[in-house]
Design a protein around this nucleic acid. Structure first.
Lengths: 239, 239
DNA sequence: TCAAAAGTGTTCGCCATACACCCATGG
DNA sequence: CCATGGGTGTATGGCGAACACTTTTGA
């Protein structure tokens, strides 16, 4: 495996996706059941090997296309590299893992060996894929509080109650609709559509509908303790 | 390069380190000057290829040992994968980049072709190494405000003034000693050593010395908008 | 006694939460 | 007209920033 002229070691590189969506009130991930060894009948993250003409992000989008309609993926972000020498049996494979999100109003068709699984009740998983899936969940949970990443979980228009369900499911605890509304509004993330949703059979006031102002991820809570002074007191080389 | 039995493509994998330290009032990075093509006389991040028996973190620590005394590195953290097909000329090389920090009281010996360079005045750099170095700088700046990562830049004991200099240099703007002291104290990160530093030639009150309570990175500002309710209202499967 | 540097007390404003109360609809 | 769910007003507590003021030293 070693190239004597360069001293480099050739190895395989794969990309893996943790595709997350809120379904039936819980955060779920796409897994496919392995038919063959190694780890037959265990569940794996979708992915595959990196080709010569693509970078890792292009690769994960291509690989996903074989499992779900990639146009339904609303956000893709690099998670980390997993490189333990024995992470898969046989020849060495290094993996770059991604967090991908699908908005809740879509239900992409999946191949027969592939299914959604709640992150808090995963089936037996292959290799280090459970670690990767949990890491993706944690990344999403963190980013929900200081970015606008909620747009990637939500349909184009929604009521605050619906959004509250999504946040609650993704975060794993009840979120107050009142505060969710205020926090997102203050940050300028919510735009009223003018439409209202019809009340359910039990009655109640019709809910106003909103959409997210932006559909690209941005940090919305600079959370910067020790932030620059008001006068933008940037320093040059010395001070 | 393609293995017909698996469909995988073999490629080289390298690890690169952005080793940062506050020196002479500015944040600097270790670079070495390339003697040979490609990119002769341009400056590169230290690193090298991943070996078969090590993961990427073990690899970067081994590679660094050839440039700086690794025992002087106080923090190592994965940054991202850089994988553009043409990021280096010749055979494909995918890189995993790391952020590494050296506390300010140490001055590791460097090989003759290697030197510290301020991040805001980088020399001509090879490949995508400038992007990686700047990404490392941004990661450090973010983490200074919501983690205890300052410990990795600071000597074992320091005065608030000295710590202020470090934070100012790393962040690129003046930081108030008053608020720095209060923020870190409230979070329980600072422990008084009992010692005081002698005033300089201009006189002044002697400064109390402190150390960091922890020397492993931890998130100290949960900054969690939408945090769990006081009663820890975790939800099970449905609600 | 004065200048310089370190450290503290206090005020201010913002933000996230909690909670009470008002609004609009179906039955 | 009442139950139900949606939405708003308001009080509270905490935190970060700013700034004035006190403390302790060298000259």
């Amino acid at each position: 495996m070693t190239d004597a002229t360069t001293g480099t070691t050739a190895l395989a590189h794969e990309v893996l996706a943790a595709v997350l969506q809120v379904r039936a009130g819980s955060l779920q991930v796409v897994l496919w059941e392995r038919a063959m060894e190694p780890h037959a009948h265990k569940w794996s993250l979708p992915g595959g090997s990196l080709r010569a003409d693509e970078d890792v992000e292009a690769s994960i989008r291509r690989q996903l296309a074989e499992k779900v309609d990639v146009r339904k993926v609303s956000h893709v972000e690099q998670l980390a590299v997993f490189s333990a020498p024995d992470r898969v049996p046989g020849p060495r494979v290094v993996a770059t893992a991604f967090l991908c999100l699908v908005p809740s109003h879509l239900d992409p068709e999946l191949p027969p060996d592939t299914a959604w699984h709640p992150l808090d009740a995963l089936p037996p998983t292959a290799f280090d894929h459970e670690t990767i899936a949990i890491r993706a969940q944690n990344r999403l949970r963190s980013k929900l509080s200081y970015t606008n990443i909620g747009f990637a979980l939500a349909p184009p228009a929604f009521t605050i109650s619906e959004l509250r369900e999504l946040y609650s499911a993704a975060l794993g605890y009840r979120v107050s609709a009142t505060n969710l509304q205020r926090v997102l509004a203050r940050r300028g993330l919510l735009v009223p559509t003018g439409e209202t949703a019809k009340p359910g059979r039990a009655g109640g006031r019709p809910a106003a509908q909103f959409r997210f102002a932006d559909t690209r991820m941005a940090v919305t809570d600079p959370f910067a303790v020790l932030r620059p002074p008001a006068g933008d007191g940037a320093i040059g080389r010395t001070y």
